[in-house]
């Protein structure tokens, strides 16, 4: 499995900073994330082969969470944020289970930091910078998600196998 640290950190940023910080009932959303992450982390360890699909799912969730910030408020109901929060938390927990529970620290730290920052920014109604950051996250997520499904080009095939 590719290195999951960046995906977990950006998932924390997208979920915390964007979904929670700019969603209603932030406390409920944070609780949902924590519960889902805990459940994912204590489930029986998935097969090692599920690492790459979980990583692809994480990048997809980053795109969804970041992209949803560009929707008008009437198209971002609390239910959507709750679903994003639960699925992101669960994915982070499962990914941590496969990659090592220590990697969840990246998700937790990024989630906490970005939530605090985004709540402060939301109070000041500084939406434009946040939307710019959301755009970057969509681009990074799209690139990394694409890498997981592209066929390996000859120059990147594993070498020295014989």
């Amino acid at each position: 499995m590719r290195d999951p640290h960046l995906a977990l950190a950006l998932l924390g940023v997208a979920t915390g900073g964007l979904t929670v910080g700019f969603g209603r009932k932030g406390g409920v959303l944070l609780g949902a994330i924590a519960l889902a992450a805990t459940v994912g982390a204590v489930l029986p360890t998935p097969d090692a082969g599920t690492g790459e699909p979980l990583l692809a799912l994480a990048w997809g969730l980053i795109i969804i969470a970041a992209g949803s910030l560009w929707l008008p408020d009437r198209l971002r109901p609390h239910a959507l944020n709750l679903v994003i929060a639960i699925v992101s938390g669960g994915t982070a927990g499962l990914l941590g289970r496969v990659a090592g529970v220590g990697t969840l620290g990246w998700f937790a730290v990024a989630l906490t930091f970005s939530t605090v920052v985004s709540i402060l920014l939301a109070r000041k109604r500084w939406r434009l910078p946040i939307r710019v950051v959301a755009g970057w996250l969509v681009a990074i997520g799209a690139l990394n998600a694409t890498l997981t499904i592209l066929p390996v080009t000859p120059g990147y095939l594993p070498d020295h196998l014989e």
Binding site: R2, D3, L147, Y156, L157, P158, D159, H160, L161
Partner: peptide
Amino acid sequence: CLLAVAADAH
């Protein structure tokens, strides 16, 4: 990222 993957298969 792919370099880090490939460099280990020696």
